[in-house]
Simulated scan of single mutants.
Amino acid sequence: MKSPLDTALSQQKLLVLDGAMATELEKAGVDTANELWSATALLAEPEKITAVHQAYFAAGAQIATTNTYQANLPAFIKQGMSSADAQQLFKQAVQCAQLAAANFENDLLIAGSVGPYGAYLADGSEYTGAYRQTQTAYQSFHYPRMAALATAGVDLFAFETQPNFAEVKALIDLLAVKFPQMTAWVSFSIKDEKHLCDGTSLVKAAQYAAQFSQITAIGINCTALENVEPALLRLQAATNKPLIVYPNNGDRYDPQTKKWQSNPQAASFSDLVPKWIAAGAKIIGGCCRTNPDDIHEIATVVDANRKK
């Protein structure tokens, strides 16, 4: 199955993804210190989401991920909303990205963010994968969000920050059964360069995902900068699918305190991105704590490498 991502890669060779949403919303005054995290802005300040998307596009991003990573039906219902109202919020997240993209002439993609069940738990489980549900339970959890994102017109899904192999298998099955015309990338949450957070071999997980034509790219995100290059080399040996990476900016996160510690000694994207491209990365962006300046830095390196 040829996806919008495949088409874009055939034209551009390399693609730039956006960066962190919550970091920029917090700068804009949105209180994300709750179970909804960055999805809080959907309730009352969607224009701030649009502004963040626009800033990333202006910085050189060609793909926006919707602000739905931690948006899910159970969480919205806990806030007192009806199912119908929650569905509308998912669609509004897509509209925020679409509004931002409309301000630019070049072709831009919108990926519907599908975060893991662990994000709903809001206890750092996306960094451990230490939760267990049945396949049916995972699919029941993810289906309403995916249905709304598809209806609202995302170009593909982003199964991102996935720490749990059983959940990834459930998502891929759900994609095949309920969304046969859609594609997705799978981006794993890893505890080191060799393993998903739940201990599954990264190579094993990548090889499994690569079997499916609807999976259009495979990679890692929300990880330390130093994990990227060695993980890419393993992924490159495991699959011929395009590889996607979007790590954190080098700061350190403590899931217990839910606070970040800055790391002024972190390597720069200008230094690292050429190594990632050499190791097989085709789609590169940023995750936690990255900002439009980081994405501009990445885009500058990517643009130079397209011309080689």
Rank of each mutant, 00 (worst) to 15 (best):
V245L: 07
E193M: 08
H195R: 13
K48W: 01
D155N: 13
A100D: 10
C96D: 04
E45L: 10
L171N: 02
L99F: 09
L14I: 05
D251Q: 06
P255M: 09
A137I: 07
A20C: 10
Q133D: 10
F141S: 06
D198S: 07
N164D: 06
D192P: 12
T32A: 09
T300H: 01
T40V: 10
T128C: 01
T223H: 05
A148P: 00
T300R: 00
A41I: 04
A93T: 11
Q265G: 07
A84T: 15
S113M: 06
D271A: 15
L42W: 04
I218V: 09
K204I: 12
A238S: 00
A299V: 03
M146Q: 02
A166E: 15
P163Y: 07
A93D: 12
L243Q: 06
L272T: 08
L175P: 03
A44L: 13
N164M: 08
M21Y: 04
M182Q: 14
T136L: 15
Q98H: 12
I284A: 04
G29F: 00
T134F: 09
M146V: 08
D294H: 11
I49F: 08
E26F: 03
A59Y: 01
D85A: 15
N248Y: 04
A224D: 14
Q139A: 03
T216L: 04
C288F: 05
E47Q: 13
E24F: 12
P46E: 12
T200E: 02
A8G: 06
F76C: 08
L42Q: 03
D107C: 07
L36A: 11
V228Y: 03
S140F: 04
T68N: 10
Q88M: 12
L89V: 10
S10H: 14
A102R: 09
T136I: 14
T134Q: 07
A39T: 05
Q256T: 15
G29Y: 05
G80R: 08
D271E: 14
D31W: 03
S140L: 13
T200C: 01
S38I: 01
E160V: 00
D294G: 04
V114E: 11
A278C: 05
F212V: 01
P46F: 02
A71S: 13
Q162P: 11
D271K: 14
N106S: 15
R132A: 15
A152G: 06
Q70T: 02
G153T: 09
Q92K: 15
S187T: 08
A267G: 06
A147I: 02
